[in-house]
Amino acid sequence: MARLIAFIILLIPALIAGAGIKFMRDTLYGILNSPFPWLWFQFLIGLIFSIIGIGFFAGYLLHRDRKRGRVAPRFQKKDETKEIKQ
């Protein structure tokens, strides 16, 4: 059950990113979708959706890899307690 919930949590940002890519593609072909009054606004919303969706997925992967210790040293979290003591 937990894997299904995790899959759904990752599916929602993927769908948002896909919708954003579709809005940007439609703008390039001059197709105006119904909720948007202008093409530039449709492209802007598509860009925002894409950034949010891809960013959420990338953040999830970074968090998971940090937890397992599979990231490069520059992506590891700094230990704040050591910095305060020094």
Rank of each mutant, 00 (worst) to 15 (best):
I21N: 01
K78W: 03
K82T: 13
A6R: 15
G53H: 04
I16L: 14
A6K: 15
L47W: 08
L15A: 15
Q42H: 05
Q86L: 13
K67C: 02
W38L: 14
P35H: 02
G69V: 03
G59M: 03
D79T: 03
F7E: 06
I84Y: 08
Q86V: 07
G55M: 06
G46Q: 02
F56I: 14
I45A: 12
L44Y: 00
Y29E: 14
G69A: 06
E80L: 13
L4Y: 11
R70G: 03
L44R: 00
G69Y: 08
G55L: 10
A6I: 12
D26K: 04
L4Q: 15
T27S: 10
L4V: 11
R70I: 07
L44A: 07
G55E: 02
K77I: 03
L28M: 13
F7L: 15
R3P: 00
F41L: 14
T81C: 04
K77N: 12
F49H: 05
I31R: 09
W40M: 07
R74E: 14
I12M: 14
I54F: 09
M1G: 14
F23K: 01
F36P: 00
L32P: 01
A58C: 11
A19K: 06
F49C: 06
A6T: 07
F43H: 01
F23S: 01
A72F: 09
L10K: 10
F75L: 14
K82R: 13
M1E: 11
R66A: 08
I51D: 00
Q76L: 10
R3Y: 10
L62Y: 05
A17E: 03
I84S: 11
L11R: 05
W38Q: 12
G59N: 09
